[in-house]
Design a protein around this nucleic acid. Structure first.
Lengths: 128, 128
DNA sequence: ATAATATATGCGAAGCAACGCATACGTTAA
DNA sequence: TTAACGTATGCGTTGCTTCGCATATATTAT
C-alpha cells in the first residue's frame, strides 16, 4: 500500500504536476529547461524531481553535466493509469510553462539542453 | 488546477484509500459500518469522509439518522480515471477491512446499516 | 589546477495535514 | 421532552511537506 500512496502523493502538488505536463509534451528535458519553463528556483525544481523519481513516475539519466528527465517507461499499470489521468489536467499556468519551453527548445521539442541553450538560460534566469 | 490537486490529495492517504476500497465493493455504506470495518475512530473516519467529499470523490446522503456514503456518480473524466486507478490498489489491510465489512453486512453487500446492525456495532466498537 | 556550469542536498523556518479529545448537532425512540 | 444514537466539528498538539538559503558534488572548459 505504501508504494501506491507514495505515487499518489507525488502527484498531489502543483509544481510536480507542472513538471509532468512538460514531460508529457517532450521526450526528455534537462533540469535547467524545466527551471526556465516554470520560472521557479533550481533547488525547488530539483527537489520536486526527486520526489517524482522516488515515486517511480520519472527517471533521470545523466549525460555529461546535464541530467535529462523523462517519464519512467517501466511503470506498472497503476502508475500508467495515474499519468494518463494527469494528462487531462489543463490550466493557464501549464500552458504558459509549455509556451516558454517551446520558445527555449525551438519548434522541435526533442531538442537537447546542450545545443547552445545554456546562454539563453543564463539570461532569462538572471532577469528574475 | 486547484481542483485537480485537491482530488489527487484526497487520494494520498491510507485511511481514505481504505474507505474508497470499501465503496468500490458495495453500493453505499454508512459511517458506522466504515468505522467498524476499518477499526478506526468515528471522528477520524468522519473527517476523512469529508475530505473525500470536498474533493468530489464520494457523496453522502442522509437517511434518517444515518448518512450513507457512495462514490459520487457525477464525476468528470479526471476523477473517474483516478478512481479506476485506485481500484488497482490491493493490500492485506484492505482485504481485512473488506472481510469485516462483509461479516457485518452479511453476504449481500447492498444491505443497510439500519437492519439491526447497530447492536453489533456497539459490541465490536467497545471491544477495542 | 582553476573556474564555471549543472544539479543535488543539509538545515532550519514556515505552512499544512492528521490526530485525539471533547463536545455539538440532528434524528429517532421512549 | 428526555434519552440514546449516529455523525460532524472546534481546538490544541504532533508530525510531515515545502520552502529558501547556503553549500556540496560532479562535470566540463580554460
Amino acid at each position: 500500500m505504501e508504494e501506491y500512496i507514495k505515487a499518489l502523493k507525488s502527484l498531489s502538488e502543483q509544481t510536480r504536476i507542472r513538471i509532468l505536463a512538460l514531460l508529457h509534451q517532450t521526450r526528455e528535458v534537462c533540469v535547467s529547461d524545466i527551471v526556465n519553463a516554470l520560472e521557479e528556483s533550481q533547488y525547488k525544481v530539483s527537489r520536486h524531481l526527486k520526489v517524482l523519481q522516488d515515486a517511480g513516475m520519472v527517471k533521470g539519466s545523466k549525460k555529461g553535466r546535464w541530467i535529462y528527465y523523462q517519464l519512467d517507461e517501466n511503470q506498472v499499470r497503476f502508475q500508467k493509469m495515474l499519468l494518463e489521468a494527469v494528462k487531462d489536467i489543463s490550466s493557464d499556468i501549464i500552458n504558459n510553462d509549455l509556451e516558454r519551453l517551446q520558445k527555449r527548445l525551438g519548434k522541435d521539442l526533442n531538442n537537447f539542453c546542450k545545443n547552445g541553450k545554456t546562454e539563453i538560460y543564463q539570461e532569462s534566469y538572471q532577469e528574475q
